[in-house]
C-alpha cells in the first residue's frame, strides 16, 4: 500500500482512536497532523523501513499528548496494526495516552512536558559525534515551552552547533487551561529561538507545501545552527466545532460528536 499520509485519513484514524478509547487530547493531535504527514511522507528516513534502524532519522514528539497524530502515521507505516488502533485504551494494550518509547516508532517517552527536546538534543548530539547524516526532528508544543528545560536544551543545541536538529513549535495558541497569552505569555516565539541561536522560520502549520519547503531549506543548511520552525496552527484543526475551542483539550467524543466530526471530514 502506498503511504500517502493524507491529512484527512490521519484525522479519521485519530477520531476512531479517540472514540474507541474515549480519550482526550483530540485538539492537541489535530494541530500537528500536517506537520506529521509531511515529516513521515517526505523526510523521515528509515533504512530497510526499520523503525529501530541505527541510522534512522529521529522524530521526537516532545508534546507527548499529541501522540494520536503519531499513532495514525505509525499505523500507516505498518508498525501499528488496525487492532492496535481499534483497541485503543483497552486494558492490557500497549498504546497509552502519552508518547511512550516502548511503542515501535516512538522515540521518546514524553508527556511530562519539557523532557523530549532534551533527549532529542542528546540524540542529535550523538549523531553529530558519530558523524552520521541523521536528522532529528522534535515537535514541541507552545504551552510546553513554558518549561525551563526547553530553554536549557535550546542553549545546548546552539552551543554544540546541532545543525542536524529541527525543532518544530506547534504554536496553536492554547494550553490546557486557556490561551498561551492568558496563562503565561510567550511573546514572539520565533524571535526567542532566533535569540537562542537558531535559524528560524515561521509558517502556516497546516500548509503542507510550506512545511515541506521549510524542512528542505533548513536541513540543507549545514551552517552550525540548530533550526526552528514556528508553525502557526489551529488547535482542533479540521473539525469546525473543535477549532480554537480549547474544551477539545479535555473533552471526549460522544456518539453524536464523533458522527458529526466524521461527516465533516467526509465532506471535505
Amino acid at each position: 500500500m502506498t503511504q500517502v499520509f493524507d491529512a484527512k485519513s490521519l484525522r479519521k484514524t485519530v477520531l476512531d482512536m479517540a472514540f474507541s478509547g474515549a480519550t482526550v487530547h483530540i485538539g492537541c493531535a489535530f494541530s500537528i497532523i500536517e506537520i506529521m504527514a509531511v515529516l513521515y511522507r517526505n523526510h523521515l528516513r528509515f533504512p530497510d523501513d526499520a523503525h529501530a534502524h541505527p541510522n534512522r532519522d529521529y522524530l521526537v514528539l516532545s508534546k507527548g499528548h499529541g501522540v494520536m497524530a503519531q499513532y495514525a502515521c505509525l499505523h500507516e507505516k505498518g508498525w501499528l496494526s488496525s487492532a492496535d488502533i481499534k483497541n485503543y485504551f483497552n486494558n492490557g494494550t500497549q498504546l497509552k495516552g502519552l508518547a511512550d518509547a516502548h511503542v515501535p516508532g516512538v522515540e521518546v517517552t514524553s508527556g511530562s512536558l519539557g523532557h523530549g527536546l532534551s533527549v532529542g538534543v542528546g540524540m542529535a548530539y550523538g549523531a553529530q559525534r558519530r558523524k552520521t547524516n541523521q536528522m532529528c526532528y522534535a515537535i514541541v508544543g507552545d504551552g510546553e515551552i513554558n518549561e525551563g528545560s526547553i530553554w536549557e536544551a535550546a542553549l545546548f543545541a546552539s552551543h554544540f552547533k546541532l545543525d542536524n536538529l529541527i525543532v518544530v513549535v506547534d504554536e496553536n495558541g492554547f494550553q490546557a487551561m486557556g490561551s498561551t497569552d492568558e496563562v503565561l505569555k510567550l511573546g514572539n516565539i520565533m524571535e526567542k529561538f532566533t535569540a537562542f541561536g537558531f535559524e528560524s522560520i515561521q509558517l502556516d502549520g497546516h500548509d503542507e507545501s510550506q512545511i515541506d519547503d521549510a524542512i528542505h531549506q533548513l536541513k540543507s543548511k549545514k551552517n552550525g545552527k540548530p533550526k526552528a520552525i514556528i508553525a502557526k496552527t489551529i488547535k482542533g484543526k479540521g473539525i469546525s466545532f473543535m477549532e480554537n475551542n480549547n474544551i477539545w483539550h479535555y473533552t471526549r467524543l460522544s456518539s453524536e460528536t464523533y458522527a458529526a466530526a466524521m461527516a465533516e471530514l467526509e465532506e471535505k
Binding site: 523532557h115 532529542g120 525551563g148
Partner: peptide, 19 residues
C-alpha cells in the same frame, strides 16, 4: 552548563545512540 535537567535528557539521548 548549569542546566542539569537538560543534561540528563541529553544523556538519555546519547545512551539511545550507543554512548
Amino acid at each position: 552548563g548549569i542546566a542539569e535537567q537538560n543534561m540528563v535528557g541529553v544523556a538519555a539521548g546519547l545512551a539511545k545512540g550507543g554512548f
